[in-house]
Design a protein around this nucleic acid. Structure first.
Lengths: 247, 247
DNA sequence: ACGTTGATTTCGTAA
DNA sequence: TTACGAAGTCAACGT
């Protein structure tokens, strides 16, 4: 990794065009070829950058000035005019071990799959990522209460739900989000529309489960008969490991 | 700006939890308070970071080791254990002048407004950012072909379209996107629903114009009678400056 | 202040 | 490989 502090101006031409007038900035060139231009503000995002793969060229000018030209194979060009170089450090960092993340939507879905009762009394999980022709529904559950549905004696294809569950109650399609907006409601509504075309599943209700639900989304959801459930991550983690709650 | 090269391990606890095992990394602390952890790869995104506002504390340990703890008011915590510091530079960069951008969606909209014929044969622009009660439609155009609409002799309020254009053909609401997904289709569908409540405008057709349209979005659009137009930025730039095409 | 939309989004994953 | 959804999305703009 090379770190340069320099007074410079920057031009980017590619998917858009951008220009940075002359100022003192940090230029970073990583071992993977990335070039980053950072100011002393603007949080974690660089003012300008070029991701790998790219070709890098450095031309010397008069009085310590120089020019960096970085080109991507897609025709993007990042040009940096270094007018005055105040520092130029190089460091060998080696390869970084990976980052471990925990607590994203996938994990929330796991916890809900392990504790479907959090979504509604008596709910049982039928399948995660239940496939439809417009994409998979996060969770398909079964609610033993409510209206009776027809009993199907015919055997069903593999991806179908277990026939036994359909004997009473109804199915519930669950959309899991960390933060649910109107788009989540519409996504779930599309799934419900599809699922309710299937006479074997019908009627399918909808549940929107999220750590936070936008007020507008809640209004739209209720209007469409979709039930909203706000889930708490920590409570859920407890519910998924019920043995911990006995003590 | 402070730049530290150090062997360190990092833990983040906040909206999610993340852990980075010990390795040599660049730690950046900007004048605005941001703390960034960069590896020598991974392009422009830091491995971990904390945006301002935050509180920063640095504790010294034995043999040059130290610990940085960065806390945000929302309860997020970034903890960096510096086991070995290889470099520690400070630089005063000053305030950065702004970035000038050109060529984003707004610019695409300008080009289409200047060359509405790209959207359909004979299309004329009625208005950009045509207001509705759920937000402005990117472009409202008029298609001289197709069904006849009623002629309105009454004068109209200022934001209304020119009455003369309504004498033949029909109106077209255009949604402009760089990349169109299903959400763009639904956004346009909502606008069309609203616009078609207006007896003066009715009937209003829909056109989705984008540099790239997701296949699923195209299916949904066609199903709703919305026409899809893929626009090319460079061609459009040529069409918007027709004098250049004479030579 | 809040909500909505765009982004050189980037990044992961599943088909 | 491609396509699609999620992101510690962030950030800008309009209400």
């Amino acid at each position: 990794m090379r770190l340069v502090i320099a007074r410079c101006s920057v031009d980017y031409a590619g998917r858009l065009e951008a220009h940075l007038p002359s100022a003192i900035r940090l230029l970073m060139r990583k071992a993977d070829g990335s070039v980053l231009v950072h100011a002393d503000g603007g949080a974690y995002k660089p003012l300008n950058w070029m991701n790998p793969p790219n070709t890098f060229s450095e031309e010397s000018g008069p009085e310590g000035a120089s020019r960096w030209v970085v080109r991507s194979p897609k025709g993007e060009t990042l040009t940096i005019e270094l007018e005055e170089v105040l520092a130029d450090h190089r460091h060998d960092l080696g390869v970084d071990p990976g980052l471990r993340k925990d607590g994203v939507e996938a994990h929330l879905q796991e916890l809900l799959a392990a504790a479907p009762g959090s979504l509604g009394d008596g709910f049982r999980l039928v399948r995660r990522e239940y496939p439809t022709d417009i994409g998979p529904v996060d969770l398909l559950c079964h609610d033993p209460t409510g209206e009776q549905v027809a009993i199907h004696l015919t055997s069903e294809p593999s991806p179908g739900p277990a026939a036994g569950l359909a004997a009473g109650g109804h199915y519930v399609a669950v959309e899991v989000k960390r933060r649910a907006g109107i788009d989540a409601v519409e996504q779930l509504a599309r799934y419900l529309e599809r699922l309710n075309l299937d006479p074997i599943l019908r009627p399918v209700r909808g549940v929107l489960a999220a750590q936070a639900i936008a007020p507008q989304a809640r209004v739209v959801a209720e209007a469409r008969g979709i039930h909203c459930v706000v889930v708490d991550y920590d409570v859920l983690r407890g519910a998924a490991e019920p043995e911990l709650r006995l003590f």
